[in-house]
Amino acid sequence: MTEQERLELFMERIRRGEKIEATDWMPDEYRQLLIKLIHMHAVSEIMGAYPEKEWVPKAPSLRRKLAIMAKVQDEMGHGQLLLRVVEDLAKPLGKNREDLIEDIYHHRVKFHNVFHMEARTWADAGVIGWLVDGAAIINQASLLSTSYGPYARVLKRICAEESFHMQHGENIILALAMGTPEQKRMLQESLDYWWESLLFFFGPPEVTPAAERMLYYRIRTLTNEELRQKFLDKYVPRILSIGLTIPDPQLHYDKELKRWIYTMPDWEKFGEIVKKNNGPKSRERIELRRQAHEGGRWVREAMLTKTAV
């Protein structure tokens, strides 16, 4: 079979809606795109633990303390599941877990803009749990139909656990929204701070060449803008219902265009954060990951030492 024939057969499978498996033949481009996407997803889960981790020791009740620990733990667990998928894809290229983690502090892999931001208050921890997770859930739910089987399977597990995260986030927010004036003020102030990041989350509206290829291979099925619209569909009414003000006077649903109109955020700022790791907390959190990984190397080495049992 020529390379061309193999490729055609492969694309036929994709078009038929079949799932591709790790051991199947796949075009290099498909493998590279998967690695890029899932590596970023995995690293976002792991780096996503840090902003909330800062609030684990400060959670204001025993129940909240337990719940936020469980939630951050789940995020690490999702990172684990996703890393395993990337590891199997990257193995033929000679990369393993160590390389994939080191890529974070060698700035060779990006992670979601939201995790470059500061979590300043308990309300921020709540908004992360509610809206940042909400955005992530929209994204992950849309990936359930991805053409890559191993990714689809771990996403199924991840989405099941995210349904707990949704309740967890909503519960914190509802407590604040129904709380004292000070709690309400904290919550509004937090939404004001996070709104731009939430719009950033799904990426710029234009379909980049890489995104186009992902759609072509059915790795992804929706564009950035389609996802953002779905997020606004689900979350704007809820945000308004608890008496919060969204800090965008332009924001409204255009019934004729059947889409949300919003003030375009500054996409240059977004690039600065995500591509150059120049967000308010980028350096500090990347350094934490470096310390955890490098600082734990002696443990990993020791655990591998063959010993007399």
């Binding site: 684990q80 393993n96 877990r97 160590e98 597990r157 190397r297 990993r300 655990m303 591998l304």
Partner: peptide, 29 residues
Amino acid sequence: KVEYGVYEVFVQKSHADHHVHVGSLMAPS
């Protein structure tokens, strides 16, 4: 480079069920 092994994980939910594959992990032993 440090390289843990890959282990496939199978869970048996109850005595009436067989073990079912749930995923894999990396571990030193």
